[in-house]
Amino acid sequence: MDKPAQDNRAAGGSFSAGAAWTTDAAPGGAPALAVRDLRKVYATGTEALKGVSLEMPPGDFFALLGPNGAGKTTVIGIVTGIVDKSGGSVSVFGDDIDRHPQAARRHIGVVPQELNFNIFEKVIDIVVTQGGYYGIPRKIAYPRAEEILEQLGLHDKRNDKSMTLSGGMKRRLMIARALIHRPRLLILDEPTAGVDVELRRGMWDFLRRLTAQGTSILLTTHYLEEAEQLCRHVAIINRGQIVAAGTVRDILAQLHAETVVLDLAPGAAERAASLLPAFRAAVADPSTLELEIASGHSLGEAIVALETAGIGVRMARGKAGRLEEVFMKLTAEGEK
């Protein structure tokens, strides 16, 4: 017997115009997601997970990063009940997926990597029908679906067949479908894959609003900038094992050095590099220099040296994609 669901937002709850919804995910309660020693061996013999453990606090925005085939989607598949685990345990807000599967599933909204709705159905029907699977009557689900579609910019398309939507719209439809039962934990498996920059930024804003209102979000992504911009905690998975986990700041601290980009006068980069042997300077182009500033050195020190030599620094900025550097470093170590 499954225990009765404690969180009954699926059938009720408030939904304010122009915003998402309130949540009762109390900080300091059971973890939004607790994964312990998760193992998966597929029927083919492939060992996809070799003892993955991670914990996600309530209200967190958490990124699971890893190269293709690392095991990200397998983790999500097990958490959401699509993939059977070979060992370990998973609980969602304290509800074990084996002992209380119904309660655990009620907490979760999932946006899979592949489009998996019926392309012949209307947009609104896909969302309302999903609500029905969670026991939400149509008279409640219908206005709720309209509200979510409005927020995701799909209201105008609500009566269109889903096959007529663009790629970005289909992604947003999957998010709308996942939110119809007001989950406490939203899981997104590469949600912005194939989405253009403008739409991606809009999606980021939407997800930020969700977390601000208390929804916990677990995200897998190939866009490391996405994790760096959005997430508080990050775990890097490679070959079925977690190779690093912590806050984004903790992970970035593993770099031990920060890369700064200097914009100089045209043609000055080569000479500037020769003046800064302690900084592992790299010439990006004749007027751009990349400096790696390790501990014991400072950016000011470099700028003073250049100004003294008559080379003016027009602009200094941090190099984007710092997380990518850590990611590449850690996954490359795993290959060795």
Binding site: D2, R105, E114, N116, F117
Partner: peptide
């Protein structure tokens, strides 16, 4: 096709 059976399998429907 499209694995939309997952819509039901991820839900709490017994």
């Amino acid at each position: 096709f499209s694995r939309n059976i997952d819509e039901i399998l991820v839900s709490p429907t017994p």
